[in-house]
């Protein structure tokens, strides 16, 4: 059966990393949508990083939730990033255009290097 998603939050200088553990499906809707206020315009400029390293299964319902978050984040000015996404799911993200909203990096180190260069 579906493994329930658990989200742990870590902070870094310009934002937070959400460590996801479990499946990203319809059953993870509440955890993902309520992990922060995605429509909060006072969060504009904050960087939110999804760590998918321990996410073995993503389905279309889970992708639909990520799309809702991406749409809300774009309106409120929250910048989204991800790492640890398998090659297969990266292809799926590109197919539907989710990569236009969430910048994907191979790992935390390369992401932090890039963000460090931007600051």
């Amino acid at each position: 059966m579906t493994s329930q998603l658990v989200i742990k939050e870590r902070s870094f200088s310009s934002g937070v990393i959400l460590d996801l553990q479990g499946d990203v499906t319809k059953t993870s809707e509440d955890q993902l949508l309520h992990s922060r206020n995605w429509s909060d315009e006072t969060s504009a400029g904050i960087r939110v990083v999804f760590n998918f390293t321990d996410v073995p299964y993503i389905n279309s319902a889970g992708i639909a939730i990520l799309i809702r978050i991406a749409q809300a984040a774009e309106k409120s000015g929250i910048m989204l990033y991800a790492y640890g996404v398998s090659n297969h799911y990266q292809k799926m993200f590109r197919l539907i255009g989710l990569n236009e909203f969430i910048m994907i990096f191979p790992d935390e180190y390369s992401l932090m290097q890039r963000l460090g260069a931007l600051e």
């Binding site: 389905n59 279309s60 539907i96 236009e100």
Partner: peptide, 22 residues
């Protein structure tokens, strides 16, 4: 379609079929 094309949709659907076809 892609997310950008469906931004005005309240609840964009059809991702499952799109993944299957891909």
């Amino acid at each position: 379609g892609k997310v950008r094309d469906k931004l005005h949709w309240e609840n964009p659907r059809g991702w499952g079929l799109q993944l299957m076809q891909h």
